[in-house]
């Protein structure tokens, strides 16, 4: 079939063909004509005009009422034509905005990038996926010469661009802390001051900071209102909530965070997460805690990175590939 041309001659030809034959082929071509018109931003009133002109040429004796009624239709279509143009314009604007956000998201990725460290005796898996383009969750690994491993995990309540901007601030504050400042409670207390001074009171940031010491086989941690993680007892196959109390960052000027210490046994896992994981939604209900832990259990025998990815893919599918909140999950297994 020939390519449809966007002109009066062609329209007249199609119209005539249809009037004579009532052929579906002509209607199909009219459909093509219609699509082409939208592509070329041709408004409906112009098509009606073409129709009137074509009709008059085919039927010079066109009754006045028919002619007038078509003019009436033309008049009635003007606003649709304007809406089409506006739509066109807004669409272009949206595309421009989207690409701007994509650039920003990319920049954020670079700014907040962290290297998953290779530490003897530890198997580490981490995944963080934003619900929209920009991530309001943040995790960061800090390694030191003595092989200790610091793990920071934060979540801005809310998502999108404001959350992402706040996260960059956390990252840079942490970078500016002196290297010997490694105690989880001290780090959270310092960050609390930064957030309290710089962030709008309506914005809350929760955070967990943990420090693994391979020599003592201990995990020290403190939490600023963060979603509790879990300790997995490999021998028993059970989970224990990692309990830690503390105010969210920025709520008061001086906050104190209690620090806890756990002994880590070989084969056991530390599971850290943000509420985007535990608050996965199934239709209009949240996934129950036991259901969630069962999913973790189904994957925990895998290498840590495969496990976090497996869990993510499971919940992604469960939610029809549409995350409602940023999703971050970290699994650390002590291997020897």
């Amino acid at each position: 079939m020939k390519a449809i041309k966007l002109d009066l001659d062609n329209y007249r030809k199609l119209l005539k063909e249809y009037l004579l034959t009532k052929d579906e082929r002509a209607l199909y071509q009219a459909e093509q004509f219609s699509k082409l018109s939208v592509q070329h931003n041709i408004s409906p009133e112009e098509i009606i005009h073409v129709h009137i002109e074509a009709l008059k040429e085919l039927y010079p004796e066109l009754p006045r009422e028919i002619n007038d009624s078509l003019n009436f239709l033309l008049e009635a279509m003007i606003s649709y034509g304007l809406a089409l143009q506006e739509n066109h314009f807004l669409r272009e604007k949206q595309l421009a905005l989207e690409s701007e956000i994509a650039v920003a998201a990319n920049m954020q990725k670079t700014l907040l990038s962290t290297v998953k460290p290779c530490i003897k005796g530890l198997d580490i898996g981490a995944i963080s996926v934003p619900a929209n383009q920009m991530n309001g969750d943040y995790y960061h690994f800090v390694t030191d010469k003595d092989d200790t491993l610091g793990i920071a995990l934060a979540d801005v309540i809310g998502k999108g661009i404001p959350a992402a901007l706040a996260m960059s601030m956390i990252k840079y504050s942490m970078d500016s802390f002196p290297e010997n400042q490694r105690e989880p409670s001290v780090i959270l207390e310092s960050l609390n001051r930064v957030v309290e001074r710089n962030v709008d009171p309506s914005m809350f940031i929760t955070m967990f900071y943990g420090l693994y010491n391979p020599e003592h086989e201990t995990f020290s941690y403190a939490s600023a209102g963060h979603e509790p993680g879990f300790y997995y007892h490999a021998a028993k196959g059970t989970f224990e909530e990692i309990k830690a109390k503390g105010l969210v960052l920025g709520a008061t000027e001086h906050a104190n965070y209690q620090q806890f210490v756990s002994h880590i046994r070989t084969g056991d896992c530390i599971i850290l997460l943000t509420d985007g994981v535990t608050e996965c939604r199934l239709g209009d209900r949240f996934v129950e805690r036991d259901e969630f832990l069962q999913v973790i259990k189904d994957y925990i025998h895998l290498p840590a990175q495969d496990a976090v990815e497996g869990v993510y893919k499971y919940f992604e599918r469960l939610q029809d590939f549409h995350l409602r909140d940023d999703f971050t999950l970290i699994i650390i297994r002590k291997e020897v």
Partner: peptide, 11 residues
């Protein structure tokens, strides 16, 4: 003015 432009002006 043609009919289409008349309609546009009126709108």
């Amino acid at each position: 003015f043609g009919t289409v432009d008349q309609a546009r002006i009126a709108t």
